[in-house]
Design a protein around this nucleic acid. Structure first.
Lengths: 136, 136
DNA sequence: TTACCAATTGCAAACATTAGCAACTGAAGG
DNA sequence: CCTTCAGTTGCTAATGTTTGCAATTGGTAA
C-alpha cells in the first residue's frame, strides 16, 4: 500500500495534476467519461458500449471512483454511475480541440514529407499556416 | 458477428485522447507545460525550476515533442521551447478547477470521518458547499 | 431455501513507463 | 587542434499499470 496515499494534503499541486491526468489516460476510462458526459449510465449499459468484460470495466470504474471523478448509486440490482463534476465534460471538449490541432499538425508534416519528390531538390519547407476546421 | 467493432479503420478517437492525457500524466511534464504557459523557456531555464537532472528533463521534453505539444527552436548553443497550442494553457486551468472540486470533496469526506465520534451516532453528511479559490 | 444475475474484488502474469548513468552531438572559446 | 558547455540519446534496473481468471458480495426471483 505504499504508493498511493488516499488524500495527501501536502503533495505538490503539479503532482496531483499529473495523477489526475494519468487517471484519464486509459481508453476505457475515457470512453466511460464520454458516455457519462451525455447522461447517467448503469454498468450494464456501459458494458456493450465499451466492449470489455465486466471485471475489467469494474476495475476502471473503481479507478475513476477513487479519483472522485464519478459516483455510483445503487438502484435495485444495478449501479448507476454519473460524473461528479460537469467541468469534466468541458475538459474532454478542450482536449478534443487540442487533439484536432495536434493531428492537423501531424497531417501537415506528412504532407510535407510527401511533397518532397523522390530525386528532386531540397524540401521546400512551407511556412506553416494554422487551420480552421474542427470536425467531430 | 455483429457487436464489438473497432469503430474506425484508424485509431479510435478515444484511444488518441487516452494517449494525449497519458502524455500529461507526469509531474515533470506538467511542470514544464505550466512554465511554458507563461512564456518560452530555454532548457537551461527550465532545469532549476523542475529540479531534475538534464538527461531526465530532456527525455520528458522528447515525450512532449513527440506528442506535438511543444516545439524546440535552436538559438545559439541553447534550445528554447514553447507550446504548440495556447489551448493547452486553458486545459491546465480547467484541470485545476476540477482538481479543486475533487479535493474539496475529499476534504469533506475526511471531515465526515473525523466527525464520527468513537462511539456516538452515524455520520452527519453535510450537504455540499462549493469551493474557495486556490493558489497555483 | 436454492439459483441466478449484476457488479465487484484479489491475485499474478504480461506489459509499459520511469529514472539514473554513461556516451554522444554540435556549437563556442581558448 | 583541444576543452567546455548545452542538450540529447541509449541502455537497463526498478517501478507502475493493465488485464484475465477465479472467487465473492448483494439483490432478486422461483
Amino acid at each position: 500500500m505504499a504508493g498511493r496515499e488516499a488524500v495527501s494534503v501536502t503533495a505538490p499541486l503539479y503532482q496531483l495534476k499529473a495523477e489526475f491526468f494519468r487517471t484519464l489516460g486509459h481508453p476505457v476510462r475515457i470512453r466511460v467519461l464520454e458516455l457519462l458526459s451525455q447522461r447517467e449510465h448503469a454498468v450494464a449499459e456501459l458494458l456493450p458500449q465499451v466492449g470489455v468484460e465486466p471485471a475489467h470495466l469494474s476495475q476502471q470504474l473503481a479507478v475513476l471512483r477513487r479519483a472522485n471523478l464519478v459516483v455510483g448509486r445503487k438502484e435495485g440490482s444495478s449501479v448507476r454511475y454519473s460524473l461528479t463534476s460537469p467541468h469534466i465534460t468541458g475538459l474532454l471538449t478542450v482536449a478534443r480541440t487540442i487533439l484536432t490541432g495536434v493531428l492537423t499538425g501531424q497531417a501537415e508534416l506528412l504532407q510535407d514529407l510527401r511533397a518532397v519528390a523522390p530525386e528532386t531538390g531540397p524540401p521546400p519547407h512551407q511556412p506553416h499556416q494554422p487551420r480552421q476546421p474542427q470536425p467531430s
